[in-house]
């Protein structure tokens, strides 16, 4: 089963993983990844704001998850992504995947991360004492997609 949630509220990654693992049927491996609000290298982050495109966000995440289900032998997948104003150390998003074997669970979790980083309509803005700035997309994130494109 695929579960997609886009929400403003904070979530507890541990509780999410527990609930996900309890819902599994026929899986022998489960992988989860959580993204966390980190400080800037130079420090001073007050908050992170995430804007998204209501409507498209849900459908883009659903499509990405459906592709993962098709490419790997997954039993279940979960994507939770927040929007709004987030504080340092808070979870931003998580993915969890479950499969009969670990290889599929690991690979599909990485695939989901790579795709939702640059193909799901979210935009991050950092707030510091001196002002605010949109986070720029990184070339490495775009390159990370290429490794999935040659494979079938």
């Amino acid at each position: 089963m695929v579960q997609i949630r886009v929400q403003e509220e904070i979530f507890d990654p541990g509780e999410e993983v527990n609930a996900f693992s309890r819902s599994l049927q026929g899986a022998g491996a489960m992988v989860s990844f959580t993204g966390i609000v980190r400080d800037r290298p130079e420090g001073g982050l007050d908050a992170l704001e995430i804007e998204h495109y209501p409507g498209m966000t849900e459908s883009a995440l659903t499509e990405i998850a459906a592709e993962a289900m098709e490419r790997w032998a997954l039993t279940d997948a979960l994507i939770v992504h927040r929007f709004g104003r987030l504080q340092l150390g808070e979870p931003i998003m998580m993915v969890a995947t479950a499969a009969p074997h670990r290889g599929d669970a690991f690979a599909s979790a990485e695939f989901l991360m790579d795709y939702l980083k640059s193909r799901a309509p979210f935009w991050k803005k950092e707030f510091v004492a001196t002002g605010e700035a949109w986070v720029e997309a990184r070339a490495e994130d775009e390159e990370a997609l290429e490794r999935w494109q040659g494979e079938s």
Partner: peptide, 23 residues
Amino acid sequence: LADFGTSLDGVREVAFFPPMTGG
């Protein structure tokens, strides 16, 4: 997601934005 050459025939909604920074 589309490109700038995409036809607008019958289209109801077009959105412009910078490269996405999810995750």
